[in-house]
Design a binder for these strands. Structure first.
Length: 620
RNA sequence: GGUCCCAUAGCUCAAUGGAUAGAGCAACUGCCUUCUAAGCAGUAGGUUGCAGGUUCGAGCCCUGCUGGGAUCACCA
C-alpha cells in the first residue's frame, strides 16, 4: 500500500481519538514536505486549533509523539516547525512500496462503464492544417488518452467543415486557373493544393475589388458614406470605407463573388458536375489531412461531415417549440430566450426557414448521442467560441437532453507568434506540415552536432529523429495550461534541452542504456533491509504521485498536469542518475534497488508521454 | 457599452488556501578516463498589474481599479 495512504488513515484515526475531529482523506492537510525541510510528509495543524483548544505547535508535537510511539512501523521520526508537523516514514515501508510498485508500476483506475466522446481537430477543407489545429489536435488526443486511462470508454470524433462558400472559392479558382492540375500532376500535397487555390481566389478577388474601387460607382458610394457619417466621429477615409465594404461588395457587386455563390447554390441543388468536382477536391484534401494526422500519430473513430449534418437540428426546433422552450416571431424566425440564465436571446431558425450554426450543432449533438450514447461529450474548441458553447449547452439543458450535464467545452487559448496573431493575409500562418518537417530536421541537426549517434543502427536513425523532433514540438505545446493563450516561438519549439520533450526522452534512454549493460531488475526480488538513501527516496516519492496527476488532468481537462509531472520525474531521475551509480553500486542490494527504481521511472515516463501522444526512443 | 478570460523573473511557463513564490531559456562559474553531458551542481534575476477586504495563513477567494484579449450577426 502507498505509504501516504497508510499515514493518512493513521492520522485520521488519531485525530479522531485525540481531538474528536473528523477528517476525510480528501481534506486532510497532508502534503509532501518541501525540500528545504527534513521529513517525507507534512501535516498542517492550524485547522485543528479549535477542536484541540491549544496551539498549532503543541498539536503538532502531540500528534508527532503519538505517531512515533503508537505506530513505530509507519513513522520513524518527526519535527515541528511553526505549526507544521514534518513526518518521517519508516524506510522499510518505502522499500516495501518500491517492491510493490516494481511489479505494478502503472496506476490502475477502475473501468467506469461510462462512455465519453471527444471531438477535436475540426478542420475546414479549404485550407491545410496550421499551428492552431496542432494545439487543438494535441489537446484532444492527449485528453482522450487521459480519459481512457482514468477509466472511461473513449470515442474520438472530428467534425469536418467540408461545405460552404469557402470550399466553393477553392473550386472556382481551380476551375478558372487550375489547368486541370492534381496532386499527382503538381506534386503538391492535396490539402495544400486546394489551399493554394483558395489563396488564388482571394488574390483574384482582391484585384477585382481594387479595379472596381476606381469606378464612378465606387466613388459615389464613398461620397455617400462621407456625407452620412457622424460629425462627432473621425471622418470616413476612402481606405477605411473600402475595408468595411469588402463583404458587401463580395455579396452584391463582385463577379467572382456571384460565381462562387452560384456554385454554392448549385452544390445545394445537387448539381452533378459541381458535386463531382467537390468530391474530387475534398478527396485530395482528406488524403493530405491523413498524412498530417499520421505524422502526428492521431486517429479518429468517426468523422462527421457538415455536408451530411448541416440540415440536422430542424426536428429539435419543432421539439423545442412543442415544449415551449423556443418561440416563433411574427416573421417566422424561431428563437430561444436565455436571459434568465444570464445569456441572450438566440436565433435558431431564420425567417426564411433555414438553419444557423447553432441549430446544426444541436442536431450534431443529438446525432452523435444516437450513434454512441455517450453521456459525456468533450468539445475541444478555441476560446473564441466560449459564448457559443455556453449557449449550446444551455439550450440542450433546456431541452432536457440526457447528456446535458456531461457537456464540456475544453476551451483553449489561441496560439500566437512572438510577432502577434497569425494572419493569413500577412502570410504569418505557421503550416502544420512545415512545422513537423522543421522540428525533425532540427532534431537531426542536433544529433549530428553532438556526433553521438554512432551506436544507433543507421536504419533506425530516421525514426529516432522523428520521435525526438515531434516530442520537442508536442511537448512545447502540451506543457502549457490549455486555458492560456500561448506564445509560440518557433525557435523555442525546436529546443532539445531544458524543460523539453527530448529532456524527458533522455532520462528514459539513459535507463535503457543501463538495462542493456546490467540487465533488467529481477522481478519479485526482495529488497528487504535496504537502507534507502534520501536521493533515492526523493525520486520514489515523486513516482508515487503519478495517479494523482492523471486524476487531476482528467478532472480538470488539462493534460499539462501530466506533462509537467513527466518533466518533474525526468528531472528527479537525472539528479538520481548523477548522484548514484547503478552498475557500480556499493552493494548487490543497492544495485537491485536502483534497477527497480530505474525500471519504474522508465515505465512511468513512457506511459506519461504516451498519454501525451509522444513516443520514447530506445537510444538517442 | 454588456458578458467572459488573462496579468507571476528580461523571455516562455509552473505553483490541491500553507512554510523563504519555482523551472526552463538567455547571461555567468564549475563538472565528461566513471551507467548517454539532449545531463548535473552553482551565481544572478520578484513589491505575483494597482488598492482594499476575508483568513491563523492569499499569487490563488471577494470588491473596486488599470492594462490586454475574446465575444455580444437572420456569419460559420
Amino acid at each position: 500500500m502507498h505509504p501516504i495512504r497508510q499515514l493518512k488513515q493513521t492520522i485520521i484515526q488519531l485525530v479522531k481519538t485525540m481531538y474528536n475531529h473528523d477528517f476525510n482523506t480528501e481534506d486532510l492537510p497532508l502534503s509532501p514536505t518541501r525540500k528545504e525541510f527534513s521529513g517525507d510528509y507534512t501535516l498542517v495543524t492550524f485547522a485543528l486549533t479549535r477542536a484541540a483548544k491549544t496551539s498549532p505547535d503543541q498539536i503538532a508535537t502531540d500528534i508527532g509523539d503519538r505517531l512515533v510511539q503508537d505506530y513505530p512501523a509507519i513513522v520513524s521520526d518527526y519535527n515541528v516547525i511553526k505549526g507544521f508537523l514534518n513526518i518521517d516514514i519508516q524506510t522499510a515501508l518505502w522499500v516495501g512500496y518500491l517492491e510493490a510498485l516494481s511489479s505494478n508500476p502503472l496506476p490502475a483506475f477502475p473501468r467506469l462503464d461510462e462512455r465519453v466522446l471527444v471531438e477535436f481537430a475540426s478542420p475546414n477543407t479549404n485550407k491545410p492544417l496550421h499551428l492552431g489545429h496542432v494545439r487543438n489536435i494535441l489537446l484532444g488526443w492527449s485528453m482522450s488518452k487521459i480519459l481512457d486511462r482514468a477509466g472511461y470508454e473513449v470515442v474520438r470524433v472530428q467534425v469536418v467543415n467540408d461545405r460552404g462558400i469557402a470550399i466553393c472559392k477553392s473550386m472556382l479558382a481551380w476551375q478558372k486557373f487550375g489547368g486541370g492540375s492534381t496532386p499527382e500532376s503538381s506534386g503538391i500535397k492535396g490539402d495544400h493544393l486546394v489551399g493554394d487555390y483558395y489563396v488564388r481566389f482571394e488574390e483574384e478577388f482582391k484585384a477585382e475589388y481594387s479595379a472596381w474601387q476606381t469606378t464612378p460607382a465606387a466613388a459615389d458610394l464613398v461620397k455617400a458614406a462621407k456625407d452620412k457619417s457622424d460629425p462627432q466621429k473621425p471622418p470616413v477615409s476612402e481606405e477605411g470605407f473600402f475595408k468595411s465594404y469588402k463583404n458587401t461588395y463580395f455579396n452584391e457587386a463582385s463577379t467572382l463573388g456571384a460565381e462562387a455563390r452560384e456554385m454554392l447554390i448549385k452544390w445545394e441543388a445537387n448539381d452533378p458536375d459541381i458535386r463531382s468536382l467537390w468530391s474530387t477536391m475534398n478527396g485530395w484534401v482528406y488524403a493530405g489531412f491523413q498524412q498530417t494526422y499520421d505524422a502526428l500519430g492521431v486517429t479518429f473513430d468517426k468523422s462527421y461531415y457538415e455536408s451530411q449534418t448541416y440540415l440536422l437540428g430542424r426536428d429539435l426546433v419543432d421539439k423545442g417549440l412543442d415544449k415551449k422552450a423556443f418561440y416563433r416571431q411574427e416573421d417566422g424566425s424561431v428563437w430561444i430566450d436565455l436571459t434568465d440564465v444570464g445569456l441572450d436571446k438566440k436565433i435558431l431558425l431564420r425567417s426564411d426557414g433555414t438553419s444557423v450554426y447553432m441549430t446544426q450543432d444541436l442536431g450534431t449533438a443529438e446525432d452523435r448521442y444516437r450513434d454512441f450514447e455517450a453521456k459525456r461529450m468533450v468539445y475541444v474548441v478555441a476560446d473564441e467560441q466560449n459564448y457559443h458553447f455556453q449557449v449550446l449547452f444551455a439550450i440542450l439543458k433546456r431541452l432536457n437532453a440526457p447528456y446535458a450535464n456531461g457537456l464540456v467545452h475544453l476551451s483553449y487559448g489561441m496560439v500566437e507568434l512572438p510577432t502577434g496573431r497569425m494572419k493569413s493575409r500577412e502570410g504569418t500562418v505557421v503550416d502544420a506540415d512545415d512545422l513537423i518537417q522543421e522540428v525533425i530536421k532540427e532534431a537531426q541537426a542536433g544529433a549530428v552536432d553532438r556526433g553521438e549517434s554512432g551506436d544507433i543502427p543507421p536504419e533506425e536513425l530516421a525514426e529516432v529523429y522523428k520521435k525526438i523532433g515531434l516530442a520537442a514540438l508536442k511537448y512545447h505545446i502540451i506543457k502549457v495550461n490549455p486555458k492560456r493563450k500561448m506564445i509560440f516561438d518557433p525557435k523555442e519549439s525546436v529546443d532539445l534541452q531544458g524543460h523539453t520533450g527530448p529532456y524527458i526522452q533522455n532520462a528514459y534512454v539513459r535507463i535503457q542504456s543501463i538495462f542493456r549493460k546490467a540487465g533488467e531488475p529481477t522481478s519479485g526480488s526482495s529488497l528487504a533491509g535496504y537502507d534507502l538513501q534520501s536521493g533515492e527516496k526523493e525520486l520514489l516519492l515523486a513516482l508515487s504521485e503519478y495517479a494523482d496527476h492523471i486524476q487531476q488532468a482528467a478532472e480538470q481537462y488539462d493534460p499539462s498536469h501530466v506533462a509537467n509531472y513527466a518533466y518533474a520525474i525526468a528531472k528527479a531521475f537525472h539528479k538520481f542518475y548523477h548522484e548514484f551509480s547503478v552498475l557500480r553500486a556499493e552493494s548487490e542490494l543497492a544495485r537491485e534497488a536502483r534497477l527497480h527504481i530505474s525500471s519504474v521511472t522508465a515505465q512511468i515516463l513512457q506511459d506519461a508521454m504516451h498519454l501525451l501522444g509522444m513516443e520514447m526512443p530506445e537510444r538517442m
